[in-house]
Nucleic acid binder design. Structure first.
Ligand SMILES: [Mn+2]
Ligand SMILES: [Mn+2]
Ligand SMILES: [Mn+2]
Ligand SMILES: [Mn+2]
Lengths: 221, 221
DNA sequence: CTTTTTTATTTGGTATGCCAAATATTTAGA
DNA sequence: TCTAAATATTTGGCATACCAAATAAAAAAG
């Protein structure tokens, strides 16, 4: 008997929540399999199990959806993940681009009260170190009014809020470029040819590819 | 592929370490099976695997022993367990008798640096909330010079240091009686008939059975 | 030393979560 | 509409970590 039924299940729910957010027309097994790096046959089995547990449902067009119960569970896992990330950065002095994998482990630890105590200890943070909002204890999350940097307007000023891609490679890249939540930027130039942008932050000017710009969320200043 | 090879293995090593400490003549499968609440056949399989991994060895008389490598691994797991317990009590305000099960989960989380950062954050604690010494980052543990309360002498003063039994039932009992590490006591009376003791702490006097006294470690004051 | 009891070991099974390959089935392109 | 490509499903397997029951071996008791 594997001791951790939570673990796998919670990872599926979380990834399905994140894929749903992206409003793909139809969420299928293959998308989930890619996101979790699993075989579609494996995903099919688990989806069936989660449907039986009333955490997922299949719509008329056979796309996969979270039920209310499933959505709540996903959000509570995301809550744990983000609170642990705050802990790791604010208390243990990890860098914001180092904490994701560790939080992937910590998020599955279950104990009465743990998450709420952690939240209190951390001083009820609203955002995690990557700029993402932390769901409250009921699983309510603040919708976050940001736009992609790729749709920014030349000459305007913005503040970096968060990021679409949470992979190590991307976060390491951002860290190298010293791009992080809270950074104030000005759009200097838009290059139509490759959709790259030139950006000014303080005295430092740099160029970002379209691919990068699509994964950075900003707000007008 | 189960994601957590650590988990089970570390639990075996830890329990074997603790059983070894008790210097039973010969550590066998059944003792381990009882301690972990598993079937002896299961234990046998795992012991073989751990022998193959050079974490355990079988002595001439077939008793089970940790190798140096296994002992170190056990001690590092105990280190993580006890540091997390300190965190839960000192930072998250759990009571000292509530944290063991949670620490059982947290102790298996592996990440470069996590334990040492946690230790630094907690201010390099030497004892956990139950009075047990915390091994250092090399797995060195301070031998802790205590005696069992059951061998205390009438009229003398002692300080409660730690406990042999770490079960919830026992810790809950201690908590109800307000017995915890650091408590100063005087032995008022020893009852020869049932080996129970009468004890004075401040103005409060109470009686403890032999079974309880065997599980409380003290030092002379 | 023989019998009984305890301990160790073997054997055949279970559940979870995973995979690859074969075979539907669906969807979309021509 | 027909067909090719994409997707879903089935099937048979694997690894880990468990168990129960049968048998073998060792230890203790008499
Ligand atoms: Mn993260
Ligand atoms: Mn994050
Ligand atoms: Mn403990
Ligand atoms: Mn402890």
């Amino acid at each position: 008997m594997s001791h951790f039924p939570n673990h796998s299940e919670e990872n599926y729910l979380k990834v399905i929540f994140k894929l749903q957010q992206k409003k793909l027309r139809k969420l299928n097994n293959i998308a989930i399999a890619n996101a979790l790096d699993l075989n579609p046959a494996t995903v099919l089995e688990m989806v069936r199990k989660l449907v039986k547990k009333n955490l997922l449902e299949l719509k008329e067009d056979k796309s996969i959806q979270l039920t209310e119960k499933g959505k709540k569970k996903a959000l509570l896992t995301i809550r744990r993940h983000r609170l642990w990330e705050v802990f790791l950065v604010n208390k243990l002095q990890y860098k914001w681009n180092e904490v994701h994998d560790l939080a992937e482990q910590l998020e599955h630890i279950e104990a009465k009260d743990l998450t709420d105590r952690l939240e209190t200890f951390l001083g009820h943070p609203v955002y995690d170190p990557h700029g993402d909002p932390i769901p409250d204890k009921n699983g309510k999350i603040k919708a976050h009014e940001t736009i992609a940097l790729s749709s920014a307007i030349k000459g305007k000023h913005y503040i970096v809020k968060s990021f679409a891609d949470t992979s190590d490679v991307f976060l390491d890249y951002l860290s190298q470029q010293e791009i992080k939540p809270g950074l104030k930027i000005k759009i200097v130039q838009l290059h139509e040819f490759d959709q790259s942008l030139e950006i000014l932050s303080g005295k430092k000017q740099f160029q970002l590819s379209q691919k990068v710009a699509l994964n950075i969320f900003i707000q007008p200043l």
